[in-house]
Design a binder for these strands. Structure first.
Lengths: 214, 214
DNA sequence: AGCTTTACAGATCATGTGATCAATAAGATT
DNA sequence: AATCTTATTGATCACATGATCTGTAAAGCT
């Protein structure tokens, strides 16, 4: 009879019995769900709610992460890591390709990576919380993307308007704001983000009189 | 002797005795400090910490606001209200003034209003929390600012590029991102925001071939 | 000065929350 | 099948947190 009960419990969705997973696997499972969870409810989300989503006990979380902050650190890393391909700096400075093509390629790929609900919200939450990873990421972005981009622009600028770092920020901000509208403010966005992105890039190039094939 | 103790306590900064304030005044005092407080630590800030800042007991807060959510509502209203001057719609559509001058005037004033730590952060926190006021504000912005702006732009556009709402969003996002960098990401911003703002506007006009005096 | 009103403080409740630990059972090994 | 290892649970602790309630004293009035 107890066997019958056990079987019925096994068919019950998820609530059945404890399932043992290899530590590595369970750890990943926790992190993956934690990303979705904290991205939705914010960094002050409760560990009990996260555990409920995972279908495990709250105490299990503390078997894999000493503190909640440690778990959040893992979430940050999971989200931040690999968000910036290492080959972009060279591709952005490859002068055998027109600057416009380089900018288009970069922002098409980059936007595809960051216009994602989890990333956008975790980034904003951690930014508001003053997380260190946030500052480091932006510093990194400035070093490997914006600085080279400014140099490339300056070397091609035809108009009398001198490109500054603020121009790069304006280009970047205008594009990123598409994602902010969608995932932070939860507003409808453009059907094809590629279009406004391309337009933003063309507007940028036009300001400095840089032709499309330069 | 007890009198002496009383006197020494009175000289103690703030921790002395209870000070009776008129309810209206106290309520305003609470709201004002709550704005600063929640803008800094987030909407999950604790009522006890807020009370400590005010130099009153935590229970007093609940004498003025039935729940913490009520207090937050008051904070929202305080921050959101009056952020959009009512006369902007007409000023933006006053065709006796060049569009460039109108845009400059608007964004100079608007940026002065919103590039403020409290507003920026409360807006972002409430946006992430999905607050209704947030959506209403953005809807309002679209109705009374963006829509007219699009019409004005379309009526003056000379180039073959057709202005869309996404172009307005790009102009707006690029400018607002200056404030996001400063107050959300806590990065250094431009010394004079007027300069990059003006440049963003000129870039926008240039895309549609609109001369400065049109 | 004495009285009344009520803004305020202090204690307290009920629940929430991060974290701990001994007991248990799932799955591998023999 | 019996045994061992350890991933997982359930109970629990200590403290935090929103909210309540009663008593107190500060200001206004007579």
């Amino acid at each position: 009879m107890s066997e019958q009960i056990d079987k019925s419990e096994k068919t019950t969705n998820e609530g059945s019995s404890r399932r043992r997973l290899p530590p590595k696997e369970r750890r990943q499972q926790i992190i993956d769900e934690a990303v979705r969870f904290f991205a939705e409810v914010g960094l002050s989300g409760k560990t009990r709610d996260l555990a409920k989503r995972l279908g495990v006990t709250q105490s299990l979380l503390f078997n894999y992460f000493a503190t909640k902050d440690d778990l959040l650190e893992a979430v940050y890393e999971k989200v931040y890591l690999g968000r910036l391909s290492a080959d972009w700096p060279e591709r952005l400075t490859d002068r055998s390709v027109p600057l416009r093509a380089r900018l288009l390629a970069f922002y098409q790929e980059y936007s595809a990576l960051i216009f994602e609900r989890h990333w956008m919200r975790i980034f904003m939450f951690s930014g508001l919380a003053g997380a260190d990873l946030n500052h480091r990421y932006l510093k990194h972005l400035g070093d490997v993307i914006f600085r080279p981009l400014l140099d490339e622009t300056a070397s091609l600028a035809q108009s009398d308007v001198c490109p500054t770092m603020e121009d790069i920020w304006n280009l970047h901000g205008g594009i990123v704001y598409i994602g902010i509208r969608q995932h932070i403010y939860c507003m409808p966005g453009p059907e094809y983000p590629e279009e406004p992105i391309a337009k933003a890039i063309d507007k940028y190039l036009l300001l400095f009189g840089i032709p499309h094939d330069a």
